[in-house]
């Protein structure tokens, strides 16, 4: 029961995947890799929405990369209602879907981003579409439902695209920047 009798443990640090990964991906997928920033706190690559499953499959199955764990999927809404402030923001309104993936065996991690318009074909109410990765990582099943529920992104090919946290008859997507809480829901005052 004496802690000093244990052998002091050698810690392993998590190396971030660097430029060699990017050049490999660019060689393999060419302009399907639409952007990258390896100097960021968490290095990220941006891919074209249509080729997301293909690239994720490569990231997961390649023996050297072996990204076997999908940590998190996040939808980030970039939108400012005030036109004056929006002009200063330096970006057009869009939505980013951010995938945090890591590897249990290789102990590294990577961020994959996908950029989609806020509404499909610019028509308000038409949800933007991103292909699902739930066939690659089962974690994505519930996470994609959550992103659909809260950020309003439809994942094509998902087996069960329903709301998960909000009630099924909820209107709107709460994590969008222009969301307004309903005045009333089944007789309950909203705001």
């Amino acid at each position: 029961m004496n802690p000093t009798s244990l052998t002091p443990h050698q810690f392993k640090y998590q190396p971030m995947t660097g430029t060699s990964l990017l050049s490999r991906l660019q060689q393999q997928f060419g302009d399907k890799i639409t952007g990258s920033n390896l100097e960021a706190i968490d290095p990220w690559i941006e891919v074209a929405p249509a080729s997301l499953p293909e690239i994720c499959q490569f990231l997961r199955d390649d023996a050297e990369l072996a990204f076997d764990l999908l940590n998190c999927i996040t939808g980030v809404d970039y939108f400012i209602a005030d036109p004056k402030k929006a002009a200063k923001a330096g970006w057009d309104p869009h939505i980013e879907v951010v995938y945090h993936i890591s590897s249990i065996s290789k102990k590294h991690s990577l961020v994959v981003k996908v950029k989609v318009p806020r509404w499909k074909d610019g028509q308000e109410g038409q949800l933007p579409e991103v292909p699902t990765v739930s066939h690659l990582w089962r974690t994505a099943d519930w996470h994609e439902r959550e992103v659909f529920d809260l950020s309003g992104i439809r994942f094509t090919g998902h087996p069960d695209m329903r709301r998960i946290l909000c009630p099924e008859d909820w209107v709107g997507y709460p994590l969008r920047k222009d969301y307004e809480m309903p005045l009333e829901y089944h007789g309950i005052r909203g705001r």
């Binding site: 000093t4 244990l6 002091p8 443990h9 810690f11 998590q14 249990i104």
Partner: peptide, 18 residues
């Protein structure tokens, strides 16, 4: 606590721990 990012694992640096 062993395999995580440095910012987290450095807290446990030098601890006898399995």
């Amino acid at each position: 606590r062993r395999d995580g990012e440095q910012r987290y694992t450095e807290m446990y640096d030098g601890y006898a721990f399995e």
